[in-house]
Every structure is written in structure tokens, then in C-alpha cells.
């Protein structure tokens, strides 16, 4: 008798169930686009503090990564309707992805102790990285974008005009050197970006199964290598960015930035930046 069918409840399904497929797939999609794409871009920008040093152009002016980074930041800040792009292209998708992600994570129960397989560890880490990632992104945006300086040891306020120096200062805790709290912030950044990079690379791997792009075992394995490769590259960028800023001397960076500012004002034609007028933070 135990297997006899029972009547399905006739009442209207709750929202989450009615739109189950759409929400699930939007969750997956937003992770790749725009969030994944943004993350790649963002890491590229931020790691410029390191790769900028080998940029031959920057090298010639002797300004190194600081200048390249400033250049990148200036470019972003020159985009029209930046706030609209940020809200709809970034913050909302991130909020959507995070809220649903946290909810979906509650539908599972990790069991790595009994089944300590590599794939299963990635399953659990994907969820942990999601949780930590949300916290990290919140901290990152709140302190740097919204100016919640009370969360920043040393109370530094990040400024787009002095992008590298102020960033280095928030990571290090003080303009003159690395404080203990600064070490904590830097480590938190290190962990946060590492987990987010993992989350993206592993998410790309699972998304391919979810969407049915990789079906055979071989395809899943091959795509796994590709994701691992991408993850490794992003990890290199992420670490170089964090280490780059955590080891950057804000005072010297500030000097480079000031020299850039004055150069801008003096010879506006030299730079391609359309927004040459100085903006206050």
C-alpha cells in the first residue's frame, strides 16, 4: 500500500515553486553574466597595480602599476550613467545571486565526512565560498564605494582620484605602514577573493552540466580542466592584486598620483581620458 499514489495538493504553488525553473536558471546565468564577467574584468583592473609595472608605456614614465591602475579606474569612472550600470548590471544581479544562492544552499546538507570525494568537497566549498563571498563583497563595497569608513581600520576613505594609494591605505591600516588590523583586512581580502575566484571557476564547471553543455564524462572532465585553468589565471591575478596593494607604499603612490593629476591639468591633450576635470571624492 505504501506506494499508492496520493492526490497532488490542488492549491496554488508558492512563488518559488511556480517559477522554479526560471529562478534556478537566472541564478545560474547571473553568476556567469554579468557577475562572472565583471569579476574577471575587475581582477584584471586591480591586478594592473602589478602588471602595470611591466607595461612598457607606464615603465617609460616611471610611474609603474600605480599609474596603470589609475588609468583603468579613470576609464571606468568615465563611463556614462555609471550608477545605473552599477545598480542594474552589478548590485542587483549580485543581490539576486546571493539571496537565491543562500536560499538554495539551505536545500542541501553537506556530507563530506562520510563521502570525502574531491567533487563533493567542491560542492561544499562552493557553498562556503558563496557565504564568505557575500560577506566579503558587502564589506568591500560598503567600505570602498559607500564610504563606510568606520569599518576600515585607520578610517581611510577610498578615492577614485587617488585610487591606488587610498586602496593600499585601507588594506594596510595606516598610511605609514602595515598595522595589525591591516594584516587582518589584507588576509580577509586574500581569503575573499580566493574564494570568489574558486566560486566562479567551479560555478562555470557546474553550470555547464546544469545547462546541458557537458553531458559525457569526458566532456565534463575536459571542461573541468578549462575551468581549472581559468581559475588558476584568475587566482594569480587576484593574489597579485591583493599582495600588490598590501605591499604598496601609500605615500609614494600618492606622489605618483599627484604627478599624474598635475600632468593632466597641465597637458590635457596628452591623455585620452575624456573626463579630465578633477572630481572630488
Amino acid at each position: 500500500m505504501s506506494e499508492t499514489a496520493h492526490e497532488a495538493p490542488a492549491k496554488q504553488q508558492p512563488f518559488m515553486q511556480r517559477h522554479h525553473f526560471l529562478l534556478r536558471r537566472l541564478h545560474s546565468l547571473t553568476g556567469v553574466m554579468p557577475i562572472g564577467v565583471f569579476l574577471i574584468n575587475h581582477l584584471l583592473t586591480n591586478s594592473s597595480v602589478v602588471w602595470g609595472m611591466i607595461d612598457p608605456k607606464a615603465g617609460k614614465t616611471g610611474h609603474g602599476g600605480v599609474a596603470t591602475f589609475q588609468h583603468e579606474v579613470d576609464f571606468i569612472h568615465s563611463l556614462p550613467y555609471l550608477i545605473i550600470i552599477e545598480i542594474f548590471g552589478l548590485w542587483l544581479p549580485i543581490a539576486f545571486h546571493s539571496v537565491l544562492g543562500v536560499y538554495y544552499a539551505t536545500t542541501g546538507r553537506a556530507n563530506n565526512a562520510r563521502y570525502p570525494f574531491q567533487d563533493n568537497w567542491r560542492y561544499t566549498l562552493q557553498r562556503v565560498s558563496g557565504y564568505v563571498g557575500v560577506l566579503f563583497i558587502f564589506y568591500h563595497v560598503a567600505t570602498l564605494r559607500w564610504g563606510w569608513t568606520f569599518l576600515v581600520p585607520g578610517g581611510t576613505r577610498w578615492s577614485a582620484e587617488y585610487a591606488a594609494s587610498t586602496l593600499a591605505q585601507t588594506l594596510r591600516g595606516h598610511a605609514s605602514g602595515l598595522t595589525l588590523a591591516g594584516v587582518g583586512v589584507s588576509l580577509f581580502y586574500m581569503a575573499g577573493v580566493s574564494l570568489l575566484v574558486f566560486h566562479l571557476a567551479n560555478g562555470l564547471w557546474t553550470a555547464a552540466i546544469t545547462w546541458g553543455l557537458t553531458v559525457s564524462r569526458q566532456a565534463q572532465r575536459r571542461w573541468g580542466y578549462a575551468c581549472a585553468g581559468l581559475g588558476a589565471a584568475l587566482m594569480a591575478m587576484a593574489w597579485s592584486a591583493v599582495i600588490g596593494f598590501a605591499t604598496l607604499d601609500p605615500v609614494r603612490a600618492r606622489l605618483v598620483e599627484e604627478s599624474l593629476r598635475s600632468a593632466h591639468r597641465a597637458e590635457p591633450a596628452l591623455t585620452a581620458a575624456p573626463d579630465a576635470a578633477p572630481r572630488r571624492p
Partner: peptide
Amino acid sequence: CGNSQNCVKVCPKEIPLTESIGAAGR
């Protein structure tokens, strides 16, 4: 499915479950 792929490792009949999951996804 969270793609932990435990299923395929414990299946005593060695059924390619993760391939089925990919096929179902498609």
C-alpha cells in the same frame, strides 16, 4: 542537483548518473 557527483561514485551498478544529469539538463 548540486553537482557533487557523489551519486555516481556510490552507485553499485555503476550507472553513469552524472551523464544522465547532464543529458537531463540539456
